[in-house]
Amino acid sequence: MTTVAATPAKVTRPNIVAVGTIVWLSSELMFFAALFAMYFTTRAVQGPKVWLESTGMLNVKFAAINTTVLVLSSVTCQFGVFAAERFQARRSGPLWKFSKWGLREWFALTFLMGAFFIGGQVYEYANLVHEGLSLSSRAYGSVFYITTGFHGLHVTGGLIAFLMVMLRVFKAQKFGHSQATTAIVVSYYWHFVDIVWIALFSAIYLIK
């Protein structure tokens, strides 16, 4: 142990759970890459004229509001992570003072915003099916529902993950490093899903 003096001072090793999450998210990125490739190929094969007939059915304004809520939920999620890094599970003041909020309040708010997004998406699907665009009606319907649907499933999975974090924090005897790690990796996932949606939104609703 003669080299101890030569080694630099305390080094914080990257958390193994976080490293595993990043590796998994990288594979998720390539999963969505396949979906994007499917979307653009179908678009290239069918031509912009056929595409315009279907994209005209989209309600861009409604989707933009929905997107804003999802993007803001990433912000509230990050405030939850800041609370987790302070090891603060619950609020230390009244409910309206959000500067005193803990992990539980921020994640509950994030959950509600995510649920709003999913509710909006279900409403949008219902309208589109009503107008005659279904999964099997035409190629545009297939790629639209498969890409946004898989994203919606990911958001739903994230909502379940938020519930798990809150359940775990509730059951834990004290809020320690392992609870904070769970909250942090769930936030990584949530930010990832959010960024994927921004890309999907720009491809499907803006570029068309």
Partner: peptide, 23 residues
């Protein structure tokens, strides 16, 4: 964030340097 060189990147590192809690 790690604030230094990890033991496995240290040319003069020893196995014992990376001892400690992993998770």
């Amino acid at each position: 964030r790690s604030g230094g060189i990890l033991p496995e990147d240290n040319m003069a590192g020893e196995i014992a340097d990376s001892a400690g809690e992993l998770g």
